[in-house]
């Protein structure tokens, strides 16, 4: 799989959670990558963790928050 494809897969997972109403509530970075915690106040599962492996995903997820969109929303990017 190309590096872009790996990133795109992770980005779609991030965007899907955001569309479902989840909010990014924590990021822990270690040797394995970035563990991103998503929390939802709605019914059912209210906490999901994604382990982001690619550099572009780890950049993307923080760009979302830095851009002032938390509750973060997917960005229309060319990344």
């Amino acid at each position: 799989m190309s590096a872009y494809a790996e990133f795109d897969k992770e980005r779609q997972e991030i965007d899907a959670l955001l569309r479902q109403g989840y909010v990014i509530t924590g990021i822990r970075e270690d040797l394995n990558g970035a563990a991103v915690q998503f929390t939802s106040s709605g019914p059912g599962v209210n906490r999901v963790e994604l382990l982001l492996l690619t550099a572009d995903s780890r950049k993307y997820v923080t760009t979302l928050i830095f851009a002032g969109a938390n509750p973060a929303k997917p960005l229309e990017t060319h990344m």
Partner: peptide, 19 residues
């Protein structure tokens, strides 16, 4: 890239602030 500039230092502040 269609997104605002973000430096490593700004990124780390974002993560720290979020946590």
């Amino acid at each position: 890239s269609g997104v605002a500039p973000m430096t490593w230092n700004q990124r780390q502040k974002v993560i720290s602030g979020l946590n």
